[in-house]
């Protein structure tokens, strides 16, 4: 590629970058406006009078508990999903056994269920188990519903791991546990980071399940806390914007952290493997 080609490429890349950052900029403006400016004004105009009150009403709405609940349910569900999916994908792709194809297909059917079909059956089951209004219901639901997609992503990668690696390990006398935890997991760090990011985003932004299974304020998450500002006839969009900004920050930080692991993992662990 010539010099001009590179200039052109960078111009395009920069244009897309601006386009992608715009939403964040917009969201911050949104969170500082009132309903009338939000709906009838120019979306990129600066607010006429900066409405810090939006943030104030969010904090008065008891966001602290919601925030903490969002964080811990997201972390626990994400870790569970990624670990359980890795274990399952490992035996399905790396070990030879008769029913592997069938089991895999069954797992992947889980990808196809529309969430609203599952809502009432799940509620009934949790009711029977006494898990309604208990964060466990949320965590296991998130874990289960994200397993198929996580496994799908892992599949593509696991199948590319050279057989020699495990053969070498087995010859060395490693147990299968050792092989999985000490070799396979570390070398798949980039894809694990990818699935962590994806799971995190899903869990962090989910609200239909929480809303249905949880009724106590002490277990509600940020996304449900946001519903607090939706009224029967009127909705406080400014406060919703403020909640969106507040809830965006932790996920952004986590994303930046794991995003670097995608690249890092390879160079450090592949050598060890």
């Amino acid at each position: 590629m010539g010099r001009i080609g590179y200039v052109f490429l960078y111009l395009c890349l920069a244009a897309v970058a601006v386009f992608q950052v715009f939403p964040i900029f917009w969201l911050i403006l949104f969170s500082l406006k009132d309903n009338y400016e939000i709906f009838a004004g120019n979306p990129f105009a600066l607010p006429e009078a900066v409405k810090w009150e939006n943030y104030l009403s969010v904090f008065q709405g008891g966001i602290g508990t919601y925030f903490w609940n969002s964080i811990w349910t997201t972390i626990v569900s994400t870790m569970l999903t990624v670990l359980i999916a890795s274990m399952a994908t490992f035996v399905i792709t790396r070990m030879r056994w008769k029913l592997s194809k069938l089991v895999l297909s069954l797992f992947l059917i889980g990808l196809m269920i529309p969430m609203h079909s599952a809502l009432i059956p799940l509620f009934k089951m949790f009711m029977e188990a006494g898990l309604i209004d208990n964060p466990i219901s949320i965590i296991i639901t998130y874990t289960a519903y994200n397993l198929p997609i996580t496994m799908m992503i892992l599949l593509g990668f696991y199948s590319t791991i050279p057989r020699e690696i495990e053969e070498a390990a087995i010859v060395d006398g490693s147990s299968i546990h050792r092989l999985f935890f000490r070799i396979i997991l570390p070398i798949s760090a980039p894809v694990l980071s990818t699935t962590v990011i994806i799971n995190m985003i899903y869990n962090w932004n989910e609200f239909v399940f929480v809303n249905t299974f949880i009724s106590s304020d002490k277990y509600k998450t940020l996304t449900v806390g946001m519903q607090n500002f939706i009224g029967q006839y009127m909705t406080d969009w400014g406060a919703i914007g403020a909640t969106l900004v507040i809830s965006f920050l932790p996920i952004l930080i986590a994303f930046l952290f794991f995003s670097d692991r995608i690249v890092e993992g390879i160079t450090s662990s592949a050598v060890k493997g």
Binding site: L80, I132, N134, I136, I139, F181
Partner: peptide
């Protein structure tokens, strides 16, 4: 990586245990 994995595993076990216990507790309170 090793530490992280140990942590993960611990978390899973803890949650599953918790699920088992609180499941039965809750029936009483509900």
């Amino acid at each position: 990586a090793k530490k992280a994995i140990a942590l993960l595993f611990g978390a899973v076990v803890a949650v599953l245990l918790l699920a088992g216990c609180s499941g039965s507790n809750d029936e009483k309170t509900s």
